[in-house]
């Protein structure tokens, strides 16, 4: 029981870390993307006082927004690559995200 608890704890914090980086980080970028697009579109895309025309459109926001989406897409592509790779019995090294030696049985 003791060693299993220890192994669980060791694995758990890594999963939590990876989860926060990918599982909360990518949505964060995505939300920033949505926000940027809204800023880029201006007008009714943002909340503004009733009767006024709303904020002016900011084309740079549109660009930033799509850049952010591209980053998110890259992250998803990484995830799919990971699934495929492990399906083929290979391993992706994520050392720059969380350093770990992986031995899959």
């Amino acid at each position: 029981m003791g060693h299993n608890l220890q192994f669980t704890f060791e694995a758990a914090w890594k999963v939590l870390l990876a989860g926060l980086v990918l599982g909360a980080g990518l949505p964060l970028l995505f939300a920033l993307g949505v926000r940027s697009l809204a800023w880029g579109a201006g007008g009714d895309a943002e909340t503004h006082a009733a009767g006024s025309a709303g904020p002016k459109a900011q084309p740079i926001g549109t660009v930033i927004g799509w850049l952010l989406f591209a980053v998110v897409l890259a992250g998803i592509a990484l995830g799919i690559t990971f699934i495929v790779a492990s399906g083929l019995g290979k391993q992706l090294s994520f050392e720059h995200v969380f350093p770990t030696i992986v031995n899959k049985h």
Partner: peptide, 23 residues
């Protein structure tokens, strides 16, 4: 919708990270 996205992203990340770690 925002919650749905957050929930599914969390699920996907945790599932993938865990299977990677043999958890």
């Amino acid at each position: 919708p925002a919650q749905g996205m957050a929930a599914q992203s969390a699920s996907a990340a945790v599932i993938l990270a865990s299977s990677h770690l043999g958890f």
